[in-house]
Simulated assay, not measured.
Amino acid sequence: MTKRPVTMSDVARDLGLSRSAVSFAFNDENQVSAETRDRVRERAAELGYRPNAGARALAGQRTDLFGLVTDIVSTPFGGDLIAGAQDWFWRHGKSLIIAGAAHIERPDARSIEMMLEHRVGGIIVATTWNRPIDLPASLDGVPVVLVHCFDPLGRYSTVLPDEENGGYSATSMLLEARRRRVAFINLPSDLVAAEGREAGYRRAMADAGIPLDPTLMVRSGPEAEDGYRVAIELLRDGDVDGLFCANDRIAMGAYEAARELGLRIPEDISIVGFDNQEIIAGSLRPGLSSVALPFREMGERGAELLMNAADGEPPSHVSVACPPIARNSVSILT
């Protein structure tokens, strides 16, 4: 009879520690002392446990089980991402297990170890917003795909939204409606999405032959109240006839500011958002035209790339189009 591999849970039981403490010890987390780390590693070696046993096991066997670690489960986009990945795996005779993570900047070691102990064939790591992330050492040698996030060193396959062309599409919706004084309320400069969406705005304005006016390019926090505070100042002089907001929550604040100033949407001021959060864009009156983050397609492409990675293919990087969604917040200027 084949002896069962020693797991992290076995090490924890033997030492009388929680599984989380053992996981922290192997991943050099500061939640445990150096003394505990040394004790855990010494006893694990005696028991025959190896932190990367899951990765080594994968090298010699095929599996129909894959994993998804994400902070997106409880967000408006979570259902689309999970459905996209899950449907792709089901169509190809595979199964998906999902673990939530509260702080995905450095994915929770417990979620990762749980996946490895289930001997998954690879792991998708997905985030709510586009950002760089730091993966734990326990994933060395494991097929990994990053969705809506990236490794600054480029070691893993990635699936990212095409932020720049999304910004271009949003701005073009306003320009095609004959709006010429098109302002842009961007996100904070430290966000990856802000850079791409601004590049799209700049390119659309240049293609339309409209010189950039720095007074029409401003930044805001990501929430509706931030958008309101910025928009009320931007729209006060009545010189703006089109407004591209870098997310739908900012646009919701801009709606409030426009109404407070007596501006009609879309006649006096046409507004376009980004993200296409249905609970916002579909509920505002008039409905907010927006640009969608394609989470379902990103989930599908992530699953496909993970299968490729499990087959030994080198990392690849996919950009997924962000489609414009027209509602009723834009009208042709007459």
Score class of each variant (00 low, 15 high):
C149T: 11
C149K: 05
C149R: 05
C149V: 11
C149L: 12
F150H: 14
F150Q: 08
D151F: 07
P152K: 13
P152G: 13
L153Q: 15
G154I: 12
G154M: 11
R155I: 07
R155F: 05
R155S: 13
R155P: 02
R155G: 06
Y156D: 02
S157R: 05
T158P: 02
T158K: 04
T158C: 14
T158D: 03
T158N: 08
V159P: 03
V159C: 13
L160F: 01
L160P: 00
L160W: 00
P161I: 11
P161Y: 04
E163V: 03
E163T: 09
E164D: 06
N165W: 05
N165K: 12
G166D: 05
G166W: 05
G166F: 07
G166E: 05
G166H: 04
G166Q: 10
G167T: 09
G167M: 10
G167A: 11
Y168S: 03
Y168W: 13
Y168I: 03
S169K: 07
A170H: 01
A170I: 08
A170R: 01
T171F: 03
T171M: 08
T171I: 12
S172D: 09
S172T: 15
S172Y: 00
M173W: 01
L174N: 07
L174A: 10
L174H: 08
L175V: 08
L175D: 03
L175N: 02
L175S: 03
L175I: 11
E176S: 14
E176F: 00
E176I: 02
A177K: 11
A177T: 04
A177L: 07
R178E: 06
R178M: 04
R178H: 13
R179V: 08
R180T: 14
R180C: 01
R181A: 14
R181F: 00
R181T: 04
R181N: 13
V182R: 00
A183Q: 03
A183M: 11
F184L: 14
I185A: 05
I185R: 03
I185L: 13
N186T: 11
L187C: 08
L187Y: 03
P188W: 06
P188H: 06
P188V: 07
P188Q: 08
S189D: 12
S189Q: 11
D190V: 10
D190R: 13
D190L: 07
L191I: 09
L191W: 12
V192N: 02
V192C: 05
V192Q: 02
V192F: 01
V192L: 05
A193N: 05
A193I: 04
A193M: 06
A194Y: 04
A194T: 05
A194P: 01
A194K: 03
A194D: 01
A194M: 07
E195S: 13
E195Y: 02
E195P: 00
